[in-house]
Computed example of a mutant assay.
Amino acid sequence: MEPKLVFAVLLLISVAVSAEYVRPPPRKTLDFPWSEKPSSHPQQVHISLAGDNRMRISWVTDDKSAHSTVEYGTSPGKYSAKSRGESTSYKYLFYSSGKIHHTIIGPLEPNTVYFYRCGGQGVEYQLKTPPDQFPITFAVAGDLGQTGWTESTLDHIDQCKYDVHLLPGDLSYADYMQHRWDTFGELVEPLASSRPWMVTQGNHEKESIPLLVDGFASYNSRWKMPYEESESSSNLYYSFEVAGAHIVMLGSYADYDEYSDQYHWLKADLAKVDRAKTPWLLVLLHVPWYNSNKAHQGEGDDMKAAMEPLLYDAKVDLVLAGHVHAYERSSFLNAWLFDLQKRVHNGNSDPCGPVYITIGDGGNKEGLASKYVFASCYLFAPFTLPESKHC
């Protein structure tokens, strides 16, 4: 079978048109009625990839004595294995989180449905592991938030037969109001508990207060990613492999110059990529390096100057970003507006550079960034990537 990745981009695609399209304004932030659950029952369940054939199950309990155990198996109600994990919690001014559990299960069979229960309490969940060979389907949505548009995006994702969700930053839009992390966890649980969600941080995750609160305390406590498994020193940047893809999640808000830990980690990680094993090489980050929207112009320039040569030398296929609340992709046109080349390096068309895609309007409260250099309209659409062609 010809190797391919299928991406369901559940955001807004920009195409040049003569008629002007006006999208409805942002929908209101969702209200979440209080739902009483026993304190030992799991809440905000989500899963993520955690190394070869393993999955991390994360959840929150109000009961600080609840166990960080997961029972699991391939038949409903019949659990043939059990894993014990770790837990953490954090304080943010007057807010105290529940007990946050992270438990790794496995080894697991690829492309298989598993049933699991967290802490021996509450309802049974089920997940499906990704395939170990092509084709593999990703859903990609950045800057989600918690609005009516977020619900619409999640509904579209739910209708897509995807294997892994990729989120290039700006998850909850809690913006210092810590209970909004809890409501976001409940909002995404139906999807995030059944397929792995692989995320990186955006500016709305930072939430630092000088002298009082370190940045990313909430994000790092709740959304633990496989940074240790990929030999990174920070949860803000890491990599993982699934099927035939090596995927690098970079930190736009971690140091990235040539003397930084992230730079040296990225250089070492890319050097270890085996293109015979993983012919696709993808990078996700929050702040786009190429951007023709008027929003956030130039914010990614310094990171691009430092790291773009590493991506080019490694022959990265695709770079996905969020931050700008719109969709666009790299494309060089000739005088007759024929699309000649989608790959870019150093601001120029280059057949050995990556394709760059911005996908930053998953439904956040700030609305759409609609001012481009060229007129645009916006549509929902999926797209398929053919066999990887790197130089």
Results as ranks from 00 to 15, higher is better:
Ala141Arg: 00
Tyr92Ile: 05
Pro196Glu: 04
Arg343Met: 00
Phe184Lys: 02
Ile247Leu: 08
Ala245Gly: 09
Ser218Phe: 01
Leu30Asn: 09
His246Phe: 15
Glu109Ser: 14
Ser39Leu: 13
Ala326Arg: 06
Lys78Asp: 13
Glu299His: 07
Leu340Arg: 06
Ala139Lys: 13
Pro279Thr: 04
Phe115Glu: 02
Lys78Leu: 11
Gly73Ile: 09
Ala254Asn: 12
Leu212Pro: 15
Asp302Met: 12
Leu281Met: 08
Asp255Gly: 11
Pro42Cys: 00
Pro107Val: 08
Ala192Glu: 08
Tyr21Val: 14
Arg275Phe: 03
Ser388His: 11
Trp265Glu: 03
Lys294Pro: 01
Phe94Cys: 09
Gly120Asn: 05
Thr200Glu: 08
Leu211Asp: 15
Lys4Thr: 09
Ser252Val: 03
Tyr356Thr: 03
Leu154Phe: 06
Arg343Gln: 07
Asp163Cys: 07
Ala254Trp: 14
Met1His: 13
His286Leu: 03
Asp158Arg: 15
Lys224Gln: 15
Lys206Leu: 08
Thr183His: 05
Thr183Ile: 02
Val319Phe: 02
Trp197Met: 09
Glu109Gln: 13
Gly202His: 00
Pro131Lys: 03
Ser40Lys: 07
Pro33Val: 14
Leu212Ser: 12
Gln146Thr: 10
Thr88Val: 09
His246Gln: 06
Val316Asp: 05
Ser232Ala: 10
Thr112Ser: 07
Pro76Asn: 02
Ala19Gln: 12
Pro130Thr: 00
Arg343Tyr: 00
